[in-house]
Design a protein around this nucleic acid. Structure first.
Length: 275
DNA sequence: ACGAGCGCCTGTCGGC
DNA sequence: TGCCGACAGGCGCTCG
């Protein structure tokens, strides 16, 4: 799924409420329904049940692409992977086909983790660092400066696209926002990270922050069945626009494969580093 | 250190 | 119509 802007959108919708549901802050978890056991990364189903019941939701946040729900004494951490979504619904509603985990609250509402492809994972831990320890910087944090990005880029010799999508390098970028940022920065996805200039790193830094903020502003992107709240898909410059004109120069967008992921670019704006 | 290949899953779409 | 491969917003693992 969902990349940083989509998780941020969901996080805000959970803590503030939205058109379809109230805020979940202050609700007490009274019952659990585990519909696909492998959704639980840790702990076991039995321990999950025993530990989470009775805990109150105090805060909802985000780290990279992880949703972080702060409970009375534990952290409930959710990764939506490719097809996950979170919905708040009345507790007596019929259970949808792809619901994998339900948390039932004390006031008639429940939280559903819906995940068609079953790649999503949930952790219940007392210390969130257990899950977050390997993550790179938050791209929207003030500490993540253009110079930090430059230093990190030149300390590796990797293709830009693969590095930007590596969550240890930077937390939150996925296939869509990486393609969009590289186009905005006029950089080819195959460019080796150690060949980049300070000026190019600054352009890339601006582009990353620009596309992420643009995504958040539009409540994320909605594709197919996945998170249906946002509009950003209407503003894609290159992603899934193969054959359509580049918004900058009208050259048809091409699709290549980088790291087994479909990659969209303009061959004029983002010339191949080897040619 | 780096990147390719594969597994994990379900669903849709286009070609034959 | 049915079948079959390609592809889909992610990531962890193994293997050169």
């Amino acid at each position: 799924m969902p990349e940083l802007p989509e998780i941020e959108t969901i996080s805000r919708a959970l803590s503030q409420g939205d058109n379809n549901w109230p805020s979940i802050l202050g609700k007490t978890i009274t019952e659990v329904n585990i519909l696909w056991e492998r959704t639980l990364e840790t702990p076991s189903a039995e321990e999950f049940n025993a530990r989470i019941i009775g805990q109150v939701i105090n805060e909802v946040g985000r780290r990279g692409k992880f949703l972080h729900i702060h409970l009375t004494s534990d952290s409930l951490i959710i990764h939506l992977r490719m097809s996950g979504d979170i919905l708040i619904e009345p507790e007596d509603e019929e259970i949808a086909t792809h619901h994998r985990l339900l948390l039932i609250f004390d006031d008639g509402w429940r939280m559903a983790f819906n995940d068609t492809r079953k790649f999503g994972r949930v952790w219940l831990v007392d210390d969130p660092v257990e899950v977050f320890k390997r993550l790179g910087p938050e791209p929207l944090a003030s500490e993540f400066t253009s110079d930090v990005l430059y230093q990190r880029l030149v300390s590796h010799r990797r293709q830009l696209k693969l590095l930007l999508m590596d969550q240890c390098f930077l937390a939150g970028m996925g296939n869509i926002y990486t393609d969009e940022a590289l186009h905005l920065a006029k950089l080819n996805p195959l460019t080796r990270s150690d060949t980049i200039s300070e000026g190019q790193a600054e352009e890339l830094w601006r582009a990353i922050r620009h596309v992420l903020l643009e995504g958040i502003h539009n409540n994320g992107a909605s594709i197919d069945w996945v998170y249906r709240g946002g509009d950003f898909q209407n503003y894609f410059r290159v992603y899934q626009r193969t054959g359509e004109p580049c918004p900058v120069c009208d050259t048809p967008i091409i699709r290549i494969v980088v790291g087994q992921r479909g990659t969209h670019l303009c061959s004029t704006c983002q010339p191949d580093p080897d040619s």
